[in-house]
């Protein structure tokens, strides 16, 4: 072995920022993640030019997948022009030459924090969810080594107990976002802090989803056509947020997840959380050519 075989001509930056060795490790772990859906795979998680907790896990998966013909959409809280989404999207295109888009239908890779778009993802699309805390067991077991053993034993009793206590105390499950869900009947995962509204979009989906936590150095996946079942009791059905009847005051659309905007008169207005869906609806109303794809929810119900 010579130094020449280990190195290569100097360049300011590798294609897609990550060097070949980092990409190979990501590839190996992404394959293992697909092979055992919902199971957290440890990975080295290189430092990237963004602070930990700001999407570095999602970023590493996306950077591994990117090629010049990729089309990337990045959203934060459902919005493409949210400051951190804009920052990530701009970085992705600058290190790869990939085209940026706001349109869910155009994207080949979608990186998201806290939402899944309302338009159905297709078989050729990859969704990359940023994950702050990959461990659904953390509230009952903060120690990662112990939690790992609990996953190995499929020992989820204490998680069920929390949900049961909530029902006894409050009459319903109090879990907001990041609803723990059983994947392929074996591993409980956190679907990342997406609202409950978005969890059914992962169940038996057409698309492939990666969930990656850069700071915690874990990644996991939900392949297409994989069962993702929120933890529920047979007599207390899973409840998504009560947004089905809300109407967006900007676009006029009804039946999607909304942002609530408190008003001075004591009431609230609502606007679509999926901002580009709203933009397309407004453009359609103005007579422009803007196509809206089939959506997971129709008239506020999953179809």
């Amino acid at each position: 072995m010579t130094i020449a075989t280990l190195t290569k001509p100097w360049e300011a930056m590798s294609y897609g920022f990550l060097d070949a060795s980092a990409k190979r490790e990501l590839r190996r772990k992404m394959l293992k993640a697909i092979a055992v859906p919902g199971c957290q795979m440890p990975y080295a998680s290189r430092e990237v030019p963004m602070a930990r907790g700001w999407g570095t896990g999602g970023l590493q998966v996306t950077l591994t997948l990117l090629r010049p013909s990729s089309v990337v959409k990045v959203i934060d809280q459902g919005a493409d022009d949210s400051v951190n989404a804009a920052s990530i999207r701009s970085f992705l295109s600058k290190v790869s030459g990939a085209r940026e888009t706001w349109d869910t239908l155009e994207a080949t890779i979608l990186q998201s924090r806290h939402r899944i778009p309302e338009e159905r993802l297709r078989a050729d699309q990859v969704l990359v969810l940023q994950v702050p805390n990959p461990e659904p067991l953390r509230p009952v077991e903060p120690n990662m080594s112990v939690a790992r053993q609990m996953h190995a034993d499929a020992d989820y009793g204490r998680l069920w107990l929390i949900l049961y206590e909530q029902i006894v105390r409050s009459g319903r499950v109090m879990q907001g976002a990041a609803y723990p869900s059983l994947v392929n009947g074996r591993h409980v995962m956190t679907p990342s802090p997406i609202p409950r509204w978005d969890v059914p979009k992962l169940h038996m989906a057409q698309h492939l989803t990666f969930l990656s936590a850069g700071r915690e150095k874990r990644l996991y996946a939900v392949p297409p056509f994989t069962r993702v079942e929120p933890l529920v009791f047979s007599d207390v059905p899973f409840q998504v947020e009560d947004h089905a009847a809300l109407t967006c005051h900007r676009s006029g659309l009804t039946g999607y997840f909304m942002n609530e905007i408190p008003q001075g008169d004591g009431g609230s207005q609502f606007e679509l959380s999926d901002s580009n869906l709203g933009i397309k609806a407004i453009r359609q109303a103005e007579g422009a050519d803007a196509r809206i794809g089939p959506t997971w929810y129709e008239n506020g119900k999953t179809s």
């Binding site: 360049e11 300011a12 294609y15 897609g16 070949a20 394959l31 790869s96 392949p223 297409p224």
Partner: peptide, 25 residues
Amino acid sequence: AVPLPDAFETRTNATFEALMWALSR
């Protein structure tokens, strides 16, 4: 400047994508 993929990057990226979809479906 936007970096360009060399032949190695292009090839290994495409190989991985094939493996990823093969294992996903």
